[in-house]
Design a protein around this nucleic acid. Structure first.
Lengths: 204, 204
DNA sequence: AATTAATTTAAACACTTGTTTAAAACATAT
DNA sequence: ATATGTTTTAAACAAGTGTTTAAATTAATT
Protein backbone atom coordinates (compact mmCIF):
# COMPACT_ATOMS: atom_id res chain seq x y z
CA UNK A 1 0.00 0.00 0.00
CA UNK A 2 2.85 2.32 0.87
CA UNK A 3 4.25 1.49 -2.55
CA UNK A 4 1.46 3.26 -4.39
CA UNK A 5 1.88 6.52 -2.53
CA UNK A 6 4.11 9.35 -3.64
CA UNK A 7 6.93 10.43 -1.37
CA UNK A 8 4.97 13.49 -0.35
CA UNK A 9 1.96 11.39 0.54
CA UNK A 10 4.09 8.95 2.47
CA UNK A 11 5.46 11.79 4.57
CA UNK A 12 2.02 13.24 5.33
CA UNK A 13 0.61 9.82 6.08
CA UNK A 14 3.33 8.78 8.52
CA UNK A 15 3.64 12.19 10.14
CA UNK A 16 -0.10 12.42 10.71
CA UNK A 17 -0.14 9.12 12.51
CA UNK A 18 2.84 10.05 14.67
CA UNK A 19 1.62 13.54 15.50
CA UNK A 20 -1.74 12.12 16.55
CA UNK A 21 -0.20 9.41 18.70
CA UNK A 22 2.76 11.16 20.25
CA UNK A 23 2.25 14.86 19.60
CA UNK A 24 4.49 17.35 17.85
CA UNK A 25 7.33 17.48 20.36
CA UNK A 26 7.74 13.78 20.87
CA UNK A 27 7.82 13.12 17.15
CA UNK A 28 11.21 13.66 15.54
CA UNK A 29 11.85 14.22 11.86
CA UNK A 30 13.85 11.01 11.88
CA UNK A 31 10.86 9.15 13.34
CA UNK A 32 8.75 10.33 10.44
CA UNK A 33 11.41 9.45 7.89
CA UNK A 34 11.95 5.94 9.18
CA UNK A 35 8.20 5.26 9.40
CA UNK A 36 7.73 6.51 5.84
CA UNK A 37 10.87 4.67 4.77
CA UNK A 38 12.42 7.71 3.18
CA UNK A 39 15.53 9.80 3.68
CA UNK A 40 15.45 12.41 6.44
CA UNK A 41 16.12 15.33 4.18
CA UNK A 42 13.15 14.62 1.96
CA UNK A 43 10.97 16.09 4.65
CA UNK A 44 12.70 19.44 4.17
CA UNK A 45 12.64 19.00 0.42
CA UNK A 46 8.86 18.69 0.14
CA UNK A 47 7.84 20.75 3.16
CA UNK A 48 10.25 23.48 4.10
CA UNK A 49 10.26 22.66 7.80
CA UNK A 50 8.74 20.37 10.40
CA UNK A 51 6.58 23.29 11.52
CA UNK A 52 5.12 23.78 8.04
CA UNK A 53 4.47 20.06 7.69
CA UNK A 54 2.66 20.20 11.00
CA UNK A 55 0.45 23.09 9.96
CA UNK A 56 -0.37 21.35 6.70
CA UNK A 57 -1.50 18.32 8.64
CA UNK A 58 -3.54 20.39 11.10
CA UNK A 59 -5.47 21.92 8.23
CA UNK A 60 -5.98 18.53 6.64
CA UNK A 61 -7.22 16.89 9.83
CA UNK A 62 -9.58 19.63 10.88
CA UNK A 63 -10.75 20.71 7.46
CA UNK A 64 -11.95 17.20 6.73
CA UNK A 65 -14.27 16.94 9.72
CA UNK A 66 -15.41 20.51 10.17
CA UNK A 67 -17.26 20.92 6.89
CA UNK A 68 -20.19 18.65 7.66
CA UNK A 69 -20.55 20.02 11.19
CA UNK A 70 -20.66 23.57 9.97
CA UNK A 71 -23.29 22.55 7.47
CA UNK A 72 -25.55 21.16 10.18
CA UNK A 73 -25.16 24.21 12.41
CA UNK A 74 -25.99 26.59 9.58
CA UNK A 75 -28.88 24.56 8.22
CA UNK A 76 -32.51 25.59 8.77
CA UNK A 77 -33.36 22.49 10.76
CA UNK A 78 -35.67 22.86 13.73
CA UNK A 79 -33.63 23.36 16.93
CA UNK A 80 -34.21 19.97 18.58
CA UNK A 81 -33.48 18.05 15.43
CA UNK A 82 -30.44 20.18 14.72
CA UNK A 83 -28.97 19.43 18.12
CA UNK A 84 -29.70 15.73 17.68
CA UNK A 85 -27.98 15.62 14.30
CA UNK A 86 -25.04 17.75 15.42
CA UNK A 87 -24.32 15.57 18.45
CA UNK A 88 -24.62 12.38 16.46
CA UNK A 89 -22.47 13.56 13.57
CA UNK A 90 -19.80 14.99 15.85
CA UNK A 91 -19.54 11.78 17.83
CA UNK A 92 -19.30 9.77 14.61
CA UNK A 93 -16.40 11.95 13.50
CA UNK A 94 -14.59 11.46 16.79
CA UNK A 95 -15.21 7.72 16.79
CA UNK A 96 -13.56 7.64 13.39
CA UNK A 97 -10.56 9.49 14.82
CA UNK A 98 -10.51 9.24 18.62
CA UNK A 99 -7.16 11.03 18.88
CA UNK A 100 -8.38 14.18 17.18
CA UNK A 101 -9.56 15.96 20.31
CA UNK A 102 -6.34 15.45 22.25
CA UNK A 103 -4.45 16.61 19.20
CA UNK A 104 -6.46 19.81 18.86
CA UNK A 105 -6.24 20.51 22.59
CA UNK A 106 -2.48 20.09 22.47
CA UNK A 107 -2.21 22.54 19.58
CA UNK A 108 -4.53 24.95 21.35
CA UNK A 109 -2.41 25.06 24.46
CA UNK A 110 1.02 25.01 22.82
CA UNK A 111 0.38 27.60 20.16
CA UNK A 112 -2.55 29.69 21.30
CA UNK A 113 -1.29 32.46 19.03
CA UNK A 114 -1.91 30.26 16.00
CA UNK A 115 -5.53 29.95 17.00
CA UNK A 116 -6.85 32.45 14.51
CA UNK A 117 -5.06 30.76 11.65
CA UNK A 118 -6.38 27.46 12.93
CA UNK A 119 -9.52 26.43 11.17
CA UNK A 120 -11.08 25.31 14.44
CA UNK A 121 -12.11 28.79 15.38
CA UNK A 122 -13.84 29.46 12.12
CA UNK A 123 -15.28 26.13 11.18
CA UNK A 124 -15.91 24.08 14.26
CA UNK A 125 -16.86 27.04 16.27
CA UNK A 126 -18.75 29.65 14.37
CA UNK A 127 -22.41 29.46 15.16
CA UNK A 128 -24.07 32.78 14.41
CA UNK A 129 -27.12 31.08 12.98
CA UNK A 130 -27.32 28.63 15.86
CA UNK A 131 -27.10 31.48 18.39
CA UNK A 132 -29.77 33.43 16.61
CA UNK A 133 -32.00 30.37 16.54
CA UNK A 134 -31.72 29.87 20.29
CA UNK A 135 -32.35 33.54 21.05
CA UNK A 136 -35.41 33.31 18.87
CA UNK A 137 -36.81 30.30 20.68
CA UNK A 138 -36.19 32.04 23.99
CA UNK A 139 -38.05 35.12 22.77
CA UNK A 140 -40.97 32.96 21.72
CA UNK A 141 -41.01 31.30 25.13
CA UNK A 142 -40.41 27.92 23.57
CA UNK A 143 -37.29 27.26 25.65
CA UNK A 144 -35.81 28.42 28.92
CA UNK A 145 -33.92 31.74 28.99
CA UNK A 146 -30.35 30.76 28.21
CA UNK A 147 -27.15 32.21 26.78
CA UNK A 148 -26.48 30.48 23.44
CA UNK A 149 -22.75 30.41 24.15
CA UNK A 150 -23.28 28.47 27.37
CA UNK A 151 -25.41 25.91 25.58
CA UNK A 152 -22.97 25.54 22.77
CA UNK A 153 -20.02 25.06 25.10
CA UNK A 154 -22.02 22.55 27.12
CA UNK A 155 -22.83 20.47 24.07
CA UNK A 156 -19.25 20.63 22.92
CA UNK A 157 -18.00 19.59 26.37
CA UNK A 158 -20.34 16.63 26.64
CA UNK A 159 -19.29 15.40 23.21
CA UNK A 160 -15.56 16.00 23.19
CA UNK A 161 -14.25 15.63 26.72
CA UNK A 162 -14.81 11.87 27.07
CA UNK A 163 -12.45 11.39 24.13
CA UNK A 164 -9.82 13.50 25.83
CA UNK A 165 -9.93 11.19 28.85
CA UNK A 166 -10.45 7.97 26.93
CA UNK A 167 -7.57 6.27 28.70
CA UNK A 168 -8.94 7.12 32.12
CA UNK A 169 -12.46 5.95 31.30
CA UNK A 170 -11.22 2.74 29.70
CA UNK A 171 -8.92 1.87 32.55
CA UNK A 172 -11.47 2.52 35.29
CA UNK A 173 -14.19 0.48 33.62
CA UNK A 174 -11.91 -2.12 32.08
CA UNK A 175 -13.05 -1.15 28.59
CA UNK A 176 -11.37 -2.37 25.45
CA UNK A 177 -11.69 -0.12 22.41
CA UNK A 178 -15.05 -1.55 21.33
CA UNK A 179 -16.55 -1.20 24.76
CA UNK A 180 -15.41 2.40 24.89
CA UNK A 181 -17.13 3.06 21.57
CA UNK A 182 -20.29 1.42 22.91
CA UNK A 183 -20.11 3.72 25.93
CA UNK A 184 -19.73 6.70 23.63
CA UNK A 185 -22.51 5.64 21.25
CA UNK A 186 -24.96 5.70 24.16
CA UNK A 187 -24.04 9.31 24.73
CA UNK A 188 -25.66 10.39 21.45
CA UNK A 189 -29.06 10.04 23.10
CA UNK A 190 -27.94 11.01 26.58
CA UNK A 191 -26.42 14.31 25.48
CA UNK A 192 -29.39 15.12 23.29
CA UNK A 193 -31.88 14.45 26.08
CA UNK A 194 -29.76 16.25 28.65
CA UNK A 195 -29.73 19.43 26.61
CA UNK A 196 -33.40 19.17 25.65
CA UNK A 197 -34.56 18.58 29.22
CA UNK A 198 -32.54 21.56 30.35
CA UNK A 199 -33.95 23.78 27.62
CA UNK A 200 -37.57 22.98 28.53
CA UNK A 201 -39.24 26.11 29.91
CA UNK A 202 -40.25 25.99 33.57
CA UNK A 203 -43.40 23.97 33.97
CA UNK A 204 -44.60 25.80 37.08
CA UNK B 1 9.98 36.30 48.22
CA UNK B 2 12.25 33.93 46.33
CA UNK B 3 14.87 34.72 48.97
CA UNK B 4 12.96 32.99 51.73
CA UNK B 5 12.62 29.76 49.84
CA UNK B 6 15.06 26.89 50.01
CA UNK B 7 16.77 25.78 46.82
CA UNK B 8 14.53 22.77 46.64
CA UNK B 9 11.45 24.91 46.98
CA UNK B 10 12.70 27.35 44.37
CA UNK B 11 13.11 24.50 41.90
CA UNK B 12 9.63 23.10 42.53
CA UNK B 13 8.08 26.55 42.39
CA UNK B 14 9.66 27.56 39.10
CA UNK B 15 9.28 24.16 37.48
CA UNK B 16 5.60 23.97 38.38
CA UNK B 17 4.91 27.29 36.75
CA UNK B 18 6.82 26.33 33.60
CA UNK B 19 5.32 22.85 33.32
CA UNK B 20 1.84 24.33 33.64
CA UNK B 21 2.46 27.04 31.06
CA UNK B 22 4.57 25.25 28.49
CA UNK B 23 4.31 21.56 29.29
CA UNK B 24 7.00 19.02 30.04
CA UNK B 25 8.65 18.85 26.63
CA UNK B 26 8.89 22.56 25.98
CA UNK B 27 10.42 23.20 29.38
CA UNK B 28 14.17 22.61 29.56
CA UNK B 29 16.16 22.03 32.70
CA UNK B 30 18.04 25.23 31.92
CA UNK B 31 14.73 27.12 31.73
CA UNK B 32 13.90 25.95 35.21
CA UNK B 33 17.34 26.78 36.55
CA UNK B 34 17.38 30.30 35.15
CA UNK B 35 13.86 31.02 36.39
CA UNK B 36 14.77 29.75 39.86
CA UNK B 37 18.12 31.56 39.64
CA UNK B 38 20.12 28.50 40.51
CA UNK B 39 22.77 26.35 38.85
CA UNK B 40 21.60 23.76 36.33
CA UNK B 41 23.06 20.81 38.14
CA UNK B 42 21.17 21.56 41.34
CA UNK B 43 18.10 20.12 39.70
CA UNK B 44 19.85 16.74 39.48
CA UNK B 45 21.23 17.16 42.97
CA UNK B 46 17.86 17.53 44.68
CA UNK B 47 15.72 15.52 42.29
CA UNK B 48 17.58 12.80 40.47
CA UNK B 49 16.14 13.60 37.08
CA UNK B 50 13.77 15.92 35.24
CA UNK B 51 11.30 13.04 35.06
CA UNK B 52 11.29 12.54 38.83
CA UNK B 53 10.89 16.26 39.41
CA UNK B 54 7.93 16.17 37.07
CA UNK B 55 6.27 13.29 38.88
CA UNK B 56 6.80 15.03 42.20
CA UNK B 57 5.03 18.07 40.85
CA UNK B 58 2.18 16.04 39.38
CA UNK B 59 1.49 14.52 42.77
CA UNK B 60 1.69 17.91 44.44
CA UNK B 61 -0.67 19.60 41.98
CA UNK B 62 -3.27 16.89 41.95
CA UNK B 63 -3.04 15.81 45.55
CA UNK B 64 -3.78 19.33 46.70
CA UNK B 65 -7.08 19.64 44.87
CA UNK B 66 -8.36 16.11 44.91
CA UNK B 67 -8.77 15.71 48.65
CA UNK B 68 -11.74 18.04 49.08
CA UNK B 69 -13.46 16.67 45.98
CA UNK B 70 -13.14 13.11 47.17
CA UNK B 71 -14.56 14.18 50.50
CA UNK B 72 -17.69 15.59 48.88
CA UNK B 73 -18.22 12.53 46.69
CA UNK B 74 -17.91 10.18 49.62
CA UNK B 75 -20.01 12.23 52.00
CA UNK B 76 -23.56 11.24 52.91
CA UNK B 77 -25.10 14.36 51.42
CA UNK B 78 -28.40 14.04 49.59
CA UNK B 79 -27.79 13.53 45.85
CA UNK B 80 -28.92 16.91 44.55
CA UNK B 81 -27.00 18.82 47.16
CA UNK B 82 -23.95 16.64 46.61
CA UNK B 83 -23.92 17.39 42.91
CA UNK B 84 -24.37 21.09 43.60
CA UNK B 85 -21.47 21.17 46.02
CA UNK B 86 -19.24 19.02 43.86
CA UNK B 87 -19.73 21.20 40.78
CA UNK B 88 -19.19 24.37 42.72
CA UNK B 89 -16.09 23.16 44.52
CA UNK B 90 -14.55 21.70 41.39
CA UNK B 91 -15.04 24.93 39.46
CA UNK B 92 -13.53 26.90 42.31
CA UNK B 93 -10.45 24.70 42.20
CA UNK B 94 -10.07 25.17 38.47
CA UNK B 95 -10.59 28.91 38.70
CA UNK B 96 -7.75 28.95 41.17
CA UNK B 97 -5.56 27.07 38.68
CA UNK B 98 -7.01 27.33 35.19
CA UNK B 99 -4.05 25.50 33.63
CA UNK B 100 -4.56 22.35 35.68
CA UNK B 101 -6.88 20.61 33.25
CA UNK B 102 -4.67 21.08 30.21
CA UNK B 103 -1.75 19.89 32.29
CA UNK B 104 -3.52 16.71 33.37
CA UNK B 105 -4.78 16.02 29.86
CA UNK B 106 -1.27 16.39 28.51
CA UNK B 107 0.08 13.92 31.07
CA UNK B 108 -2.77 11.55 30.36
CA UNK B 109 -2.04 11.42 26.66
CA UNK B 110 1.75 11.43 26.84
CA UNK B 111 2.18 8.86 29.55
CA UNK B 112 -0.98 6.78 29.65
CA UNK B 113 1.05 4.01 31.23
CA UNK B 114 1.68 6.21 34.26
CA UNK B 115 -2.05 6.53 34.77
CA UNK B 116 -2.29 4.02 37.58
CA UNK B 117 0.45 5.70 39.52
CA UNK B 118 -1.22 9.02 38.83
CA UNK B 119 -3.41 10.07 41.68
CA UNK B 120 -6.10 11.24 39.28
CA UNK B 121 -7.46 7.78 38.82
CA UNK B 122 -7.76 7.14 42.51
CA UNK B 123 -8.66 10.48 43.96
CA UNK B 124 -10.44 12.56 41.39
CA UNK B 125 -12.11 9.63 39.90
CA UNK B 126 -13.18 7.02 42.38
CA UNK B 127 -16.85 7.28 43.09
CA UNK B 128 -18.11 3.98 44.45
CA UNK B 129 -20.33 5.71 46.93
CA UNK B 130 -21.61 8.16 44.38
CA UNK B 131 -22.43 5.32 41.96
CA UNK B 132 -24.23 3.39 44.65
CA UNK B 133 -26.19 6.47 45.59
CA UNK B 134 -27.41 6.97 42.03
CA UNK B 135 -28.32 3.31 41.59
CA UNK B 136 -30.27 3.58 44.79
CA UNK B 137 -32.24 6.61 43.67
CA UNK B 138 -32.98 4.86 40.38
CA UNK B 139 -34.26 1.80 42.24
CA UNK B 140 -36.52 4.01 44.35
CA UNK B 141 -37.84 5.66 41.21
CA UNK B 142 -36.66 9.04 42.41
CA UNK B 143 -34.61 9.68 39.28
CA UNK B 144 -34.54 8.50 35.68
CA UNK B 145 -32.88 5.18 34.90
CA UNK B 146 -29.27 6.11 34.20
CA UNK B 147 -25.79 4.61 34.27
CA UNK B 148 -23.85 6.33 37.07
CA UNK B 149 -20.69 6.34 34.96
CA UNK B 150 -22.41 8.30 32.18
CA UNK B 151 -23.66 10.87 34.66
CA UNK B 152 -20.29 11.22 36.30
CA UNK B 153 -18.49 11.66 32.98
CA UNK B 154 -21.10 14.20 31.91
CA UNK B 155 -20.63 16.28 35.03
CA UNK B 156 -16.87 16.08 34.67
CA UNK B 157 -17.06 17.10 31.02
CA UNK B 158 -19.28 20.09 31.68
CA UNK B 159 -16.97 21.31 34.41
CA UNK B 160 -13.55 20.66 32.95
CA UNK B 161 -13.71 21.02 29.20
CA UNK B 162 -14.30 24.78 29.08
CA UNK B 163 -10.98 25.22 30.88
CA UNK B 164 -9.26 23.07 28.27
CA UNK B 165 -10.51 25.40 25.55
CA UNK B 166 -10.20 28.63 27.51
CA UNK B 167 -8.21 30.30 24.75
CA UNK B 168 -10.83 29.48 22.14
CA UNK B 169 -13.73 30.70 24.27
CA UNK B 170 -11.93 33.87 25.25
CA UNK B 171 -10.93 34.73 21.73
CA UNK B 172 -14.34 34.11 20.22
CA UNK B 173 -16.18 36.18 22.81
CA UNK B 174 -13.43 38.74 23.33
CA UNK B 175 -13.13 37.80 26.98
CA UNK B 176 -10.34 38.97 29.21
CA UNK B 177 -9.48 36.72 32.13
CA UNK B 178 -12.11 38.20 34.45
CA UNK B 179 -14.85 37.87 31.88
CA UNK B 180 -13.89 34.25 31.33
CA UNK B 181 -14.18 33.62 35.05
CA UNK B 182 -17.59 35.29 35.05
CA UNK B 183 -18.63 33.00 32.21
CA UNK B 184 -17.43 30.00 34.18
CA UNK B 185 -19.03 31.10 37.45
CA UNK B 186 -22.42 31.08 35.75
CA UNK B 187 -21.84 27.45 34.88
CA UNK B 188 -22.07 26.40 38.53
CA UNK B 189 -25.83 26.80 38.35
CA UNK B 190 -26.18 25.81 34.70
CA UNK B 191 -24.40 22.49 35.13
CA UNK B 192 -26.28 21.71 38.30
CA UNK B 193 -29.66 22.44 36.72
CA UNK B 194 -28.74 20.61 33.53
CA UNK B 195 -27.95 17.42 35.40
CA UNK B 196 -30.93 17.72 37.71
CA UNK B 197 -33.41 18.35 34.91
CA UNK B 198 -32.04 15.33 33.08
CA UNK B 199 -32.29 13.12 36.13
CA UNK B 200 -35.95 13.97 36.73
CA UNK B 201 -38.06 10.87 36.13
CA UNK B 202 -40.42 11.02 33.13
CA UNK B 203 -43.46 13.05 34.00
CA UNK B 204 -45.77 11.29 31.57
C1' DA C 1 40.21 25.81 65.13
C1' DA C 2 40.21 21.63 62.49
C1' DT C 3 37.61 18.19 60.22
C1' DT C 4 33.81 16.41 58.05
C1' DA C 5 29.65 16.85 55.56
C1' DA C 6 26.43 19.35 52.61
C1' DT C 7 25.74 22.52 49.02
C1' DT C 8 26.90 25.10 44.91
C1' DT C 9 29.56 25.91 40.83
C1' DA C 10 31.61 25.72 35.97
C1' DA C 11 32.79 22.68 32.60
C1' DA C 12 32.34 18.84 30.01
C1' DC C 13 29.93 14.68 28.27
C1' DA C 14 27.30 12.02 25.17
C1' DC C 15 23.34 12.31 22.56
C1' DT C 16 19.42 14.10 19.87
C1' DT C 17 17.39 17.77 17.48
C1' DG C 18 15.95 20.25 12.81
C1' DT C 19 18.21 21.69 8.85
C1' DT C 20 21.69 22.27 5.03
C1' DT C 21 25.05 20.86 1.67
C1' DA C 22 26.75 18.84 -2.26
C1' DA C 23 27.09 14.88 -4.79
C1' DA C 24 24.58 10.92 -6.85
C1' DA C 25 20.69 8.77 -9.21
C1' DC C 26 16.89 9.13 -11.97
C1' DA C 27 13.67 10.97 -15.38
C1' DT C 28 12.57 14.03 -19.17
C1' DA C 29 13.37 16.61 -23.21
C1' DT C 30 16.07 18.14 -26.97
C1' DA D 1 23.37 10.60 -26.94
C1' DT D 2 23.51 14.98 -24.53
C1' DA D 3 21.77 18.19 -21.66
C1' DT D 4 18.45 19.72 -18.26
C1' DG D 5 15.61 19.32 -14.46
C1' DT D 6 13.85 16.61 -10.65
C1' DT D 7 14.32 13.53 -6.88
C1' DT D 8 17.04 10.99 -3.56
C1' DT D 9 21.05 10.19 -0.82
C1' DA D 10 24.82 10.31 2.86
C1' DA D 11 27.22 13.32 5.53
C1' DA D 12 27.84 17.15 8.14
C1' DC D 13 26.31 21.27 10.77
C1' DA D 14 25.22 24.08 14.68
C1' DA D 15 22.44 24.29 18.56
C1' DG D 16 20.10 22.28 22.36
C1' DT D 17 19.09 18.34 25.42
C1' DG D 18 19.50 15.92 30.27
C1' DT D 19 23.08 14.45 33.10
C1' DT D 20 27.77 13.80 35.29
C1' DT D 21 32.17 15.17 37.10
C1' DA D 22 35.23 17.17 40.04
C1' DA D 23 36.58 21.16 42.18
C1' DA D 24 35.14 25.19 45.09
C1' DT D 25 32.42 27.08 48.61
C1' DT D 26 29.62 27.07 52.68
C1' DA D 27 27.72 24.90 56.87
C1' DA D 28 27.86 21.72 60.68
C1' DT D 29 30.26 18.88 63.95
C1' DT D 30 33.84 17.62 66.95
Amino acid sequence: MNQQLSTQEKIVHSATQLFLEKGYDRTSVRDIASKAKINVSLMNYYFRSKEILFETIIDLLIGKSSASLKEILNSDLELHLKIKKYVSRYIDILIENPLLISFVLAVLNRNPEKLTKLKVADDLYNSEIFSYQIKNEVAKGKIRDVEPEQIFISILSLIAFPFAIKHMISQKNNFDHNEFIEFIEKRKIIIYEMIISYLKPNQN
